[in-house]
Amino acid sequence: MVWFQLGLEHIADIQGYDHLLFVLAMMAPYSFKNWKQIAWLITAFTLGHSLTLALVSLSGPLLSSEVVEMGIAVTILATALYNSSSKATGVAVPIRYALVGIFGLIHGMGFSNYFTSLLGTEHSIWLPLLSFNVGVEVGQIGFALCVLLVQWILIQMLQVSQRSWQLFVSGGAAFVALTLILDRL
């Protein structure tokens, strides 16, 4: 289905890596054994971005695309900083789920910006919207699985500690987020 593919390609597009970077940062404190937390985090993020993707596509943009892009960079930075300050690895407190959901709202606006630019004028938006969102989801989950696999290799086979991975990924993500923010100012 065309719209499913467009959603999948959009999130997997390496030139628009900010969404993937967020997922990477979000998952940094967790590994395969924390699959429950990961599932809930991804669910929270999905609820957030599905909501704004639909709302904004149907009723029009709430914030300008510049503000949204900046917001996305900020969500990455915030997540990375949160990871760095938190002593707990593999634990997710309720506030984290709430934050991820809120960040999802911002990412969804970014998705909507792209999605609406693809539409023609005489479109019933529902099926394309749904398919696009599912494509985004599948891309996200696929990426999350790849990250977990890489993590597993590093932690189980190369004896890297979860905490080191968490800091390393968060540090890298924070730096990139900073450059994105400076670039989008």
């Binding site: 030139q15 892009e69 970014g110 792209y114 630019s117 990139v176 989008r184």
Partner: peptide, 8 residues
């Protein structure tokens, strides 16, 4: 990794 403003 040069930060682009997400051009499409």
């Amino acid at each position: 990794l040069v930060a682009q403003a997400h051009p499409f």
